[in-house]
Nucleic acid binder design. Structure first.
Lengths: 156, 156
DNA sequence: TTAGGTGCAAATTCTTTGCACCCTG
DNA sequence: CAGGGTGCAAAGAATTTGCACCTAA
């Protein structure tokens, strides 16, 4: 994630905020900066800790409120199975997800030809289309080897 | 969802259970039957209520345990943004999802040409591939019209 | 018979909310 | 300066767990 890219995202943030008339506070800026520069898909808690390092007084609930606000504004998206907390994803780039059915691991990958997907007309009837992603599910390497008899395979 | 299809799913269930050496209890059977015959993507609570009608003594925690067990066995998958409770999806059929970024609405759609997606080699490195789905995100009709200033757009 | 499964209720964990003060626009 | 935004602490949900009894294999 290079700096110019982040700047670009921040610019989008500013205009989206102005457009919708919401205030651009120090906290919101830092929270967005944090998630926008992340290659991961952090949970609210992870974002909270990271932001707290730079802005010691932020509270977890502000992080939640901001994350949902960004979601409503279409600047980030929520991701996949939750397992342990909702994950937030800085929208943008054309990337896709690989998810482990068992442990919830998430990996991104880029797809070249996949961008050209032709969606059925029915989809337009549901609403607007902002993002099209491919989701691949399976068992990750770790989970493939370990074959628990019955119990706890999740928390891992 | 026709009866033959459900029978087919139940057959898969039995063999998967036998294979892994887990017991096929009355509760598990009913829980699976419930979700397998659903066209929706019910939350644990919805499944619980439906099953309870036929099996008055089941407990919510058994539903959770069973759902996760089925998930680990690869018989169902967890779905999309959680918003209000994890949703479970009876894997099988080639269907895809439309998700509303704001309210979490989920709609299925079938894709013809999409089955032929060519996945990048990198994906195989993550683990096995069991399901490939397309996820389309946008704002559903309802959310497109209502444009809340700042507050609550989610709970809707 | 016997390990795994279930129900119950309590415990956790994640997320949201009410309120008084603060800061952006 | 005004109204949205924030932090704090407490409330609310959703999900999980310990334990003693029950049942499929």
């Amino acid at each position: 994630m290079d700096a110019a890219d982040i700047e670009h995202r921040l610019a989008r943030l500013r205009s989206a905020f102005r457009e919708r008339g919401v205030k651009l506070t120090h906290q919101r800026l830092e929270i967005f900066r944090e998630i926008a520069s992340s290659l991961e898909h952090p949970t609210a808690d992870v974002v909270f800790r990271a932001v707290k390092a730079r802005l010691p007084t932020v509270s977890l609930d502000t992080v939640y409120r901001t994350l949902w606000l960004l979601n409503d504004l279409g600047l980030v998206a929520t991701l996949g199975p939750r397992k342990e907390g909702i994950r937030f994803d800085p929208n943008l780039g054309r990337h896709h997800h690989y998810l482990c059915l068992r442990c919830g691991l998430v990996r991104d990958f880029e797809g070249s030809g996949m961008a050209a997907l032709r969606l059925p007309a029915a989809v337009r009837g549901f609403g607007s289309v902002r993002v099209v992603q491919v989701e691949v599910r399976g068992l990750c390497r770790r989970c493939s080897s370990a074959q628990p008899k019955t119990k706890k395979a999740r928390k891992a």
